[in-house]
Amino acid sequence: MVDVVNRESEPIRVLVAKVGLDGHDRGVKVVARALRDAGMEVIYTGLHRTPEEVVATAIQEDVDVIGISLLSGAHMTLFPQIIELLKRHDAQDRHVLVGGGVIPEEDAAALKKMGVHEILGQDTPPATLVERVRELAIAQRIRA
């Protein structure tokens, strides 16, 4: 369909959110900047967001990708909440969910099983991250 083809060239929109109480925003800022420099539109909502706020924002902003960063150790609590809320709003198929931060392999595997599409650690080079986000977003648009 014409529109699906066109959608691939539409700017990718990404919500970059810090959930939890930690203020380590070095990573999200680098990510936001790398995505912007790759032509994407990045919505940044600041520190200490709750899962409810993240999901409401993702829906209003109609983002392709939700990027969640947290280094507070609460990933096994907060990611499931976000997934649950996306389901409740019937939005889990519309947004790709990507996590970042200090997340042990074991937890990363569990989160992926729950529905987090990708976990990108702090060693991920900006160029790799940008490509992965683009891939995930395009795949998601074709699915939707």
Binding site: R36, M40, T45, G46
Partner: peptide, 14 residues
């Protein structure tokens, strides 16, 4: 340069 943008107005509207 890139056409991309960082949109941060929502921070004030949380």
């Amino acid at each position: 340069l890139s056409g991309g943008a960082i949109l941060g107005d929502r921070i004030r509207m949380q």
